[in-house]
Design a protein around this nucleic acid. Sequence first.
DNA 1: GGCCCTATTTATAATTG
DNA 2: TCAATTATAAATAGGGC
Lengths: 179, 179
Amino acid sequence: MGRRKIEIARLTDTNNRQVTFSKRRTGLFKKANELSILCGAEVAIVVFSPGNKPYSFGHPAVDVVAAKFLKQECNPNTSQSVSSSKVVNINKYNKQLVNFASQLRDEQEKGAMFDETIKQFAGIETLTHLQMLHASLVKLKENVRSYSRDVEAAETLILFSEKPVKEVKRCVSKRNKKI
Amino acid sequence: MGRRKIEIARLTDTNNRQVTFSKRRTGLFKKANELSILCGAEVAIVVFSPGNKPYSFGHPAVDVVAAKFLKQECNPNTSQSVSSSKVVNINKYNKQLVNFASQLRDEQEKGAMFDETIKQFAGIETLTHLQMLHASLVKLKENVRSYSRDVEAAETLILFSEKPVKEVKRCVSKRNKKI
DNA sequence: GGCCCTATTTATAATTG
DNA sequence: TCAATTATAAATAGGGC
């Protein structure tokens, strides 16, 4: 709907992309508003601009509709979802956790070797530096380990995310009930 | 945009309202899809029909965008304790990430010192050990950093899963007032 | 960035089958 | 009860300021 027909593909020019975003976001929200008024429908929209700024529209309010949607999704019956591409896969994080753990073990072994090596030197100043470094390393490792533990504790939650949306919702609601 | 101009007011005829809803919902989602593609924007829409059926559109996914929105807009002062042994508070991760970052910077400084110190020693074997250790440390740091980044990326998902609906509501409504 | 303009495309209200 | 069609209103691309 303009002077020229444009192909629906990512706009390459940054400025044009921003301008188009503004115009079309306005249009989208206007349409949403009309839909809600004409049909008495409840609508919630959240958009992030190319510059990652958030914009939202809601009738009667984003939160109301969102909450209603979440409730409904706990018992997915009649909902129709049109979700495009890019499903976030959480497996990656689990793998990294595993790698992390094994690297930590390696570091611990090497740390022991490091301690032995240090003892062979008597230079006080140098020793101090090395010991400081080593202490830092140890502390860092501890933090990493504790962090990993926490991440592991959160793992069940993280794992939800890799499942399809409806599964996620179901799992979460189950969890919430337990709590 | 039709044979006649219509006033934007609640359609009285039930059937017409349902028909119009279907058409306009399709149009709205199409627009949203175009917006996301043209501008690389993230979009989430939830709609309830006059008959109260839920419909949704999301790029990359409703939940992802919603979670991102919530994450951005939830203020720390709003935080209410949801803690149980099973539910992980994401704030903890944020703090740890911050600590991590500063520790990593410290380690980098000390790493430089370490390199200098190493050069003062000539024992090949020892040097090798130390260098190996240092290399490992560097690699570990890199991994920690990249892992942190990834955790951050996944954060919205985690946050989304952990938050009870009522929390969500509050945060979102605050946001709406700002906009 | 925002707001106007307007040729043109697109969405859709009303109609038809 | 619709899906398709069509005439028309609305959105908007590309511009200018």
